[in-house]
Design a protein around this nucleic acid. Structure first.
Length: 426
RNA sequence: GCGGGCGUAGCCAAGUGGUUAAGGCAGCGGCUUGUGGCGCCGCCAUUCGGGGGUUCGAGUCCCCUCGCUCGCCCCA
């Protein structure tokens, strides 16, 4: 069977699903506007080096999940696996940071070559914000609050905010040294992956899901305990802000995150209703990234929400009766038969649309009975019927489809019909 | 990359080695050559994801393969 189908992990969004997506997009736009964020759109394709340098060579995302290929000019190109690196690149390329700090948001598809499962696809969508040029602890709290409130506004329940501080590069370097030697001493007790990571990415060992490794790790030194006084105070300040905002959180000293660029605050918002891929929103501060990509040292914080996971949660909320999506039906369904009548219906449909009415024109040329059956199913309150007889007389029949028993219908001239259907609400 | 489950029509789905592959929804046609929720009648899988094998005989058993799905890893 040679049926053509989409590539693995690449999913279609069918018309039936769009109202939910559109609801999310509309809410995102209005919430972000209130937060004084400005939208930015960047290409889906970037030079591979951007991600290699930005996200980190040792990360899983860069190491084994990127869609990378050579273009016709032998340039290594990569479909973006996340949004931050591109946004920073664009800001630097166009000198946005020279105009002051930037409050930006973006949305669009991202690509990671992974095995699909619930809440995970190879092409997926994110919406995210990036606050570039903000170092104040309040900006951490503000960024988190924007995410938290967006999710709440959408009606997602059962969320938990997990918080950690990764400190600054010096804290991490110091901690890394202590951690590496601590891990070396217990090397034989760790799983294979973790042994590997002692040299490649020791902080990620802490994140291991291997139960035996976790048992060993219970006693491991924590990054949060080896923060400098300044970093610790900074973290305290963020926490005080979150308290002031009444945003509940849970400290998770094991929260490390898989992208190298994070510093200080790291956080995730998770839902227990999502299955194995429980993170709806992930983000943190990345004070070193902009410099690493060739800009001046600039503090920044951002996060991304996975839209497919959000859709999963909202679909649950919806079926639990949390909200209903408005279904749009045509205002008028046009039924016609006979060459002249069909042409008149075509013209009339345009006139009604120009007057702002939603109009569905039956193009099948089928018997009236069939067309009216479709008119009924379309949900339109009105049907306009033009037959050969009416066409001759220059009249149309207006039927009230909501009154089924007594066939309420009137014969009208086209002018009168337009007046009736456009001056008053149907 | 590694494990588990599944694969019968557009959708849901019966079928568990024996002759023509139930049924429902949707769709199409008719009863009703020009007037809609209902009803009745008819049509809609030369074939069970694909390939190979076992057998007198396979949707049903075996092998391979592809796809979907859930989980591991990782992340949104």
């Amino acid at each position: 069977m040679e049926k053509l189908q989409s590539l693995r992990g690449m999913v279609d969004l069918l018309p039936e699903q769009m109202p939910l997506w559109q609801r999310i997009e509309a809410t995102v736009r209005s919430q972000f506007e209130c937060a004084a964020l400005r939208e930015i759109r960047t290409p889906l394709l970037e030079v591979t080096e951007l991600f290699a340098r930005g996200i980190g060579e040792a990360t899983d995302v860069v190491g084994k999940e990127m869609y990378t290929f050579l273009d016709r000019g032998e340039r290594s190109c990569t479909l973006r696996p996340e949004g931050t690196a591109s946004v920073v690149r664009a800001a630097l390329q166009h000198g946005l940071l020279g105009q002051g700090a930037q409050r930006l948001w973006y949305t669009g598809p991202m690509f990671r070559y992974e095995r699909p499962q619930a809440g995970r696809q190879r092409q997926f969508h994110q919406v995210g914000i990036e606050l570039l040029g903000f170092a104040d602890p309040r900006s951490d709290a503000e960024a988190i609050a924007i995410a938290w409130d967006l999710l709440r506004e959408l009606g997602v329940g059962g969320l938990a905010l997990e918080l950690n501080s990764l400190g600054d590069p010096a804290d991490r370097a110091a901690y890394r040294t202590t951690l590496v030697s601590w891990l070396q001493e217990r090397r034989d007790l760790l799983d294979g992956d973790s042994q590997e990571r002692i040299s490649t990415n020791p902080l990620r060992v802490l994140d291991s899901k291997n139960p035996d490794t976790q048992a060993v790790l219970a006693e491991a030194p924590l990054l949060i305990d080896s923060l400098s006084d300044a970093s610790r105070e900074r973290f305290e300040a963020v926490r005080r802000c979150l308290n002031a905002l009444d945003i509940p959180y849970q400290l998770n000293p094991r929260l490390v995150r898989g992208l190298d660029y994070y510093t200080h605050t790291a956080f995730e918002i998770t839902s227990s209703q999502l299955g194995a891929q429980a993170t709806v929103c992930g983000g943190g501060r990345y004070d070193g990234l902009i410099e690493q990509l060739g800009g001046a040292p600039t503090a920044a914080i951002g996060w991304a929400i996975g839209l497919e996971r959000l859709v999963l949660l909202l679909a649950q909320a919806q079926s639990a009766g949390g909200f209903t999506l408005p279904t749009r039906s045509p205002d008028v369904y046009l039924v016609s038969r006979g060459e002249q009548a069909e042409r008149q219906a075509l013209v009339l449909s345009r006139q009604l649309r120009q007057a702002g009415r939603m109009v569905e024109l039956d193009l099948t040329g089928a018997a009236f009975g069939k067309q009216l059956k479709r008119a009924d199913r379309s949900g339109a309150p009105w049907a306009v019927v033009i037959g050969e007889g009416e066409a001759e007389e220059g009249l149309v029949v207006l039927k009230d489809l909501r009154r089924r028993g007594d066939p309420a219908e009137e014969r009208l001239g086209a002018e009168e019909l337009l007046r009736r259907l456009t001056l008053q609400s149907p």
